[in-house]
Every structure is written in structure tokens, then in C-alpha cells.
């Protein structure tokens, strides 16, 4: 930093005796008063408005004079008696987190699956799930559109009164709604998986692949009549569970297979700015403590 600047640490002192500040002026207040009277004149007496106009004009001139050519200033003396106390170095230590090397500021976890893995895992899981569901449709109802229409019943009210024949037929709007809904949810769930897999307890694949789908199924079962009245009477629970498991296993597998990447958050500023390479850095002072 250039030596001639007068900047310092927080609360630091200077040699100077004055600080230059804008000079007090009452013209803004008078101006505000005039403007208010001007408006009040509209609803009371026109005289009030005229008085307001005069005051406003006078205050405008006053304000103008105050800032042109240069804004009026005053010198406020620095009172040495009113100086802040110096900021003390604290004796307190800071508890370190165990994880990570330099790490008391580490953000857990150090390594994660990339978000892209979650995206693709979600898509893969979603595809597996959709394939199984369509297979069910084909086997049980002789139509792959049947499960798609059921899913679309969440958003499309007309399907509530549809007959089985109508549900077996292709319905463009329903297909679109079901496709969008399924893809968005699959991807979002995939991302949640990617983020949370490292945080699961041991046997992450078991959790992600089997337990979570089962919990999810239970959740759906409790509120299904509210979410999707079309599906309530027609759902085949075993198949439903199989489809959920397919999502969990396929999605979980794709994500778990991805190479974990290191989060940069455990790095110091210099490392993140690529001034220092994380692998090559000398051990820090505090690590030797």
C-alpha cells in the first residue's frame, strides 16, 4: 500500500487534528416542508399551496448555494479524548475441526460427487424407473401409456374421470406433463443423492438404493389420495416399490461410480487463487503445533 494514504487499521489513529465533513444545513428540511405544504395545498386551501411553493423555491435556492460551486464543508476536530480503545489480540484459541489438514475452517465433506454425476444418475435412475413402469403397463394393462397417464393425473384434473380405455390411450398433454414432471423430479432427486451420498452412514448404496426409496414409497402412500386421485384406486404397490427401487439402485450406482472431486473449500486463499498448488505446499505453522 502506498505510504501516503491516510488509511489504517480499524480504529487506528492519525496525526491530523481535523476531519472534513459536510456542513450542517437546514435547507433540506425547509425544502421538505415546502414540498409537503405544496401538496397539502391540493387538499386544503390554495393559499397553503402558494406558501408551500414560495418556501420550496427559497429552500431550493438555499440548497443550490450550499452545494455550488463546491459542497460546503466543516472541519470537525478530532477529540483525542474520544478515541476508541485499541483492539486487543484475543487470548482465546479456536477449536479445530479434525477433518482435513489445514482444516479448522474446513467445510465437510472434503470430497464430493460432482453435481453432474447427480444429474446423470438422476436421469439414469429415472429412465430405469420409467422403463419398468412402462413394462408394467404393457404386462398388466397392455399399454405403455397407462402408467404415464396415471402419473399425469397429478396435474391434469380431467384424468380423474377417465375410463380405463382412455387411460390406455395416448394423451399428448398427459405425456408432456408426465415427461416434464418425471425428468425434473428425477434430476432433482439425483442431485440430492449426489450431495448426500458422502454424508450417509456406512453402506451408502444400501441407504440410497433401498432404504430411501422405501421411505419415499411410504411417504407417497400416505398422501397419494391428495397428490394424485387418479392413481389411488389403480396403483399396483409391488410394482410401484420395484420401480422406486430401480431408481434408487440405478441412480445410486451411477453416482457412486463417479470419481469424487475435492472441494476447494479446505484450501487457503493462495491455493484457490492458484498461486500455490495444494499438493506442493509446505506444511503450515499451525499443523506443526
Amino acid at each position: 500500500m502506498a505510504a501516503d494514504t491516510h488509511h489504517g487499521e480499524a480504529g487506528e489513529r492519525t496525526e491530523r487534528t481535523h476531519v472534513i465533513l459536510p456542513a450542517p444545513t437546514s435547507w433540506p428540511m425547509v425544502f421538505a416542508f415546502g414540498v409537503t405544504l405544496l401538496f397539502a395545498g391540493m387538499v386544503t386551501q390554495w393559499v397553503v399551496g402558494v406558501v408551500g411553493l414560495i418556501i420550496t423555491a427559497r429552500a431550493a435556492v438555499g440548497w443550490w448555494r450550499n452545494v455550488i460551486p463546491v459542497e460546503e464543508h466543516e472541519e470537525v476536530p478530532i477529540d483525542p479524548a474520544l478515541r476508541p480503545a485499541p483492539i486487543m489480540v484475543e487470548a482465546r484459541s479456536v477449536v479445530r475441526l479434525a477433518a482435513g489438514e489445514a482444516g479448522h475452517r474446513v467445510r465437510i465433506p472434503e470430497e464430493i460427487h460432482p453435481y453432474s454425476a447427480g444429474f446423470w444418475g438422476g436421469l439414469a435412475g429415472g429412465a430405469a424407473m420409467a422403463a419398468l413402469a412402462c413394462l408394467y403397463g404393457l404386462v398388466a394393462q397392455h399399454s405403455i401409456w397407462y402408467p404415464i397417464n396415471l402419473l399425469a393425473g397429478t396435474v391434469i384434473p380431467d384424468l380423474g374421470n377417465a375410463t380405463v380405455e382412455q387411460l390406455r390411450a395416448f394423451n399428448g398433454l398427459a405425456f408432456f406433463a408426465a415427461l416434464v414432471g418425471h425428468v425434473v423430479i428425477s434430476v432433482l432427486v439425483g442431485i440430492v443423492y449426489a450431495v448426500m451420498l458422502p454424508m450417509f452412514p456406512k453402506y451408502a448404496p444400501f441407504w440410497a438404493g433401498i432404504l430411501v426409496p422405501l421411505i419415499w414409497t411410504g411417504l407417497v402412500a400416505t398422501v397419494l389420495n391428495l397428490i394424485n386421485p387418479v392413481m389411488v384406486g389403480r396403483i399396483n404397490w409391488p410394482w410401484f416399490v420395484v420401480c422406486q427401487l430401480a431408481f434408487g439402485l440405478v441412480g445410486g450406482y451411477v453416482i457412486a461410480r463417479s470419481t469424487k472431486i475435492q472441494t476447494m473449500q479446505s484450501w487457503g486463499l493462495a491455493e484457490r487463487a492458484f498461486i500455490e498448488a495444494p499438493g506442493l505446499k509446505p506444511p503450515r505453522e499451525e499443523d506443526r503445533e
Binding site: 482465546r92 475452517r105 467445510r107 432433482l188 450431495v195
Partner: peptide, 20 residues
């Protein structure tokens, strides 16, 4: 009282989870 708790800045993962 002579110790400050660990200074954790955040976690993109947890935050992503409670966003998604």
C-alpha cells in the same frame, strides 16, 4: 471460555441439499 468454537464457513453440499 478460552476457546472459540470451530469457525465453519459453510458447506455447499448441505446447502445444496436444503435447496434442492
Amino acid at each position: 471460555t478460552r476457546q472459540e468454537p470451530p469457525q465453519v464457513y459453510g458447506s455447499n453440499q448441505i446447502e445444496a441439499a436444503w435447496t434442492v
